[in-house]
Design a binder for these strands. Structure first.
Length: 601
DNA sequence: TTGACCACGTA
DNA sequence: CGTACGTGGTCAAC
């Protein structure tokens, strides 16, 4: 039934082979790439189209990269891969800039929910196979980097599949890259998986939008690989200076570090009896005891609890100041710079395209929670600028779109959505804002209560959308975002009494209500980000940071205005397609700056 | 060594 | 009784 891969003799032959097979511009071309470690290590490449599959090995990774770049230039295919991290990862640092793709793992996370996206489970899911019967490969195989023997004696050792229909564990564990023949079959497997995913998306009610989401999420996964490779441009001397201002000079050695640490601690401890004997500022329990002796009886020692005494208690002042400098000294100190900043001044961390509940992007190395006081260190390189754009009031605008509430959609025509909402409710703007946020996030206490009733009357469609999500979460049903991402709410903990169960269900309800808004906002944002990514390339610009509703583009200074215009036009384009012409308006604040912290240029 | 909790940064 | 995330600290259980 399956035809064996045809081996391409040399990397140079790849484009010719694809053209001969009738591949046209924009066709899907599946790709599996394995590049061995080392500066010029060998590469194993598998490629597949509906016409067949091929494989080749290249003595030098750059030869493989060049061959794929030639295909990209001539055919601009939709590259199909099991995951961008696995297949595009080895390539992006070697030159080829690939435009569009289909990321089987990313689409799987949309369809199935959750974060599990390895090829074996994706395959089982698409074929309705029992997930618990997915064959497992031993850790030893992964560590050794070699394929194990076939786990089933009856299986064809050259077949991707085991007798039971599962992907073979040894292949999935990396054994597909053992030779060019297997790589070709592995690429064909990805093409098959994509076809099955397309079937599922096509059967859904909102097939067009779901397919658009699949494309955007795939591109976002590729963008994440690029973000991890490119890094965030940092003005390292400024970064060192800011760290020094907060945490003191760079320690010479471990002894010096301990000495500096003692000196920092002492500024707080000298406000305590016996110079703080027995108090460890890094141990909240002892801090709480010490505060209690000083007359502050608090349930915990969090900063916001201490805030009321700022300015009136020298101890509280010293402790709050210590907390701030300790944060920089530990999480964002010299060690952090040494670990994550390269010799080229780029801050690098790993990016995930759809982690967590609603499918937001996540980033490591502190890229998503950089304290404001360090942001001046994020700076454009010479001859370049940062174009900074953030979406305004994105979540209520998203709610208007996904719920189809025409009244709320009308409010989005205003630059400040809360102004027309306040007018309609007959309340002050701050009250309207708190009420809208409370409705989306689930707060029920405080002053939002009365205004919430007004929201129910003014925007019943949007409020019904939220309460339905809440009910789903309460009952334990998964919810689905506007773009089609499944979000599981998880089971209740066992052994709860009635009150605890009610609290846990309410927590799930809030979670689900938030997930449909935050998740849809994440989908819109990523669609925007990948559209900007595509448009940036011809301008020599690149996206260097994605922060939930904010984009940072590193651009040649002469193209600053063009990139700024691009950010606006991409948002218009994406919003129009995303909302299906529902008249919901999205707005972005765009500024050209040298440093991230600059208000304007 | 691992997982829980605390604390705190961002959206 | 607002949600989500990543990181680093300490402690108790392994």
């Amino acid at each position: 039934m399956l035809t064996a891969p045809v081996l391409v003799a040399r990397a140079d032959d790849l484009l010719h082979t694809l053209l001969t097979a009738g591949t046209r511009r924009g066709d899907a071309v599946a790709l599996a790439v394995d590049i061995r470690p080392g500066p010029a290590g060998p590469a194993v490449v598998g490629v597949a189209t509906t016409a067949g599959c091929w494989g080749f090995t290249a003595a030098r990774a750059d030869d493989a990269a060049g061959a794929l770049a030639a295909v990209e230039d001539r055919l601009r295919p939709r590259w199909v891969w099991w995951s961008a991290a696995a297949s595009a990862g080895p390539l992006v640092s070697r030159g080829p800039r690939l435009a569009t793709c289909w990321d089987v793992a990313a689409v799987h996370r949309i369809l199935a929910g959750g974060a599990v996206d390895d090829p074996a489970r994706v395959w089982a899911f698409l074929h309705g196979l029992d997930l618990s019967s997915v064959p497992r490969t031993g850790q030893l195989d992964l560590l050794a980097g070699t394929a194990s023997e076939p786990t089933s004696a009856t299986a064809d050792p050259d077949d991707v599949l085991e007798a039971g229909g599962h992907l073979r564990a040894d292949w999935a564990g990396g054994g597909w890259a053992r030779d060019a023949d297997r790589a070709g079959r592995w690429a064909r497997g990805a093409l098959t998986a994509r076809a099955l995913q397309l079937d599922r998306l096509g059967a859904a009610q909102d097939a067009d939008r779901r397919r658009a989401t699949a494309h955007a999420e795939s591109a976002a996964a590729l963008l994440c690989v690029e973000l991890g490779a490119a890094g965030l441009p940092l003005d390292v001397p400024t970064a060192e200076q800011l760290v020094g201002a907060a945490a003191g000079p760079r320690p010479r050695d471990a002894g010096h570090e301990a000495e500096l640490r003692r000196a920092r601690d002492d500024v707080v401890l000298r406000h305590l009896p016996e110079r703080g004997a027995g108090v460890d500022l890094r141990n909240p329990a002892t801090v709480r005891t010490a505060l209690s002796r000083a007359g502050f009886d608090l349930p915990d020692t969090r900063s916001w609890r201490l805030e009321p005494w700022r300015g009136s208690s020298a101890l509280v002042d010293a402790l709050l100041a210590w907390r701030k400098s300790e944060r920089v000294a530990t999480t964002y100190g010299y060690g952090w710079l040494d670990r994550h900043v390269g010799a080229d001044g780029r801050l690098r961390g790993a990016w995930a395209a759809s982690d967590g509940a609603g499918g937001r992007m996540t980033a490591q190395a502190g890229l998503h929670n950089l304290p404001a006081e360090l942001r001046p260190a994020v700076a454009a390189e010479p001859g370049r600028v940062l174009v900074r754009a953030d979406l305004g009031q994105v979540e209520p605008r998203v709610l208007a779109a996904v719920s189809g509430d025409r009244a709320l959609a009308a409010a989005t025509r205003d630059d400040d959505l809360y102004a027309p909402v306040a007018a309609r409710l007959g309340v002050d703007r701050p009250v309207a804002k708190v009420a809208v946020l409370a409705a989306m996030y689930g707060q029920t206490s405080g002053t939002a209560g009365q205004a919430l009733a007004g929201l129910e009357r003014a925007y019943p469609v949007a409020m019904r959308y939220l309460s339905r999500a809440y009910d789903d979460g309460w009952a334990g049903r998964s919810v689905t975002t506007y773009g089609g991402r499944r979000v599981e709410v998880g089971p209740l903990p066992a052994g709860l009494d009635e009150a605890a169960e009610r609290a846990a269900r309410a927590r799930r309800g809030r979670f689900a209500r938030n997930a449909v808004v935050q998740g849809a906002a994440a989908e819109l944002f990523k669609a925007w980000a990948v559209t900007v990514r595509a448009g940036s390339r011809p301008l020599g610009a690149e996206v260097v940071l994605c922060l939930h509703d904010e984009l940072l583009v590193h651009a040649p200074a002469e193209h600053a205005d063009a990139v700024a215009a691009l950010l606006h036009s991409c948002l218009r384009e994406v919003a129009l397609g995303w909302t299906g012409g529902s008249q919901v308006r999205f707005v972005a604040d765009v500024r050209v700056v040298r440093r991230w912290s600059d208000a304007k240029d």
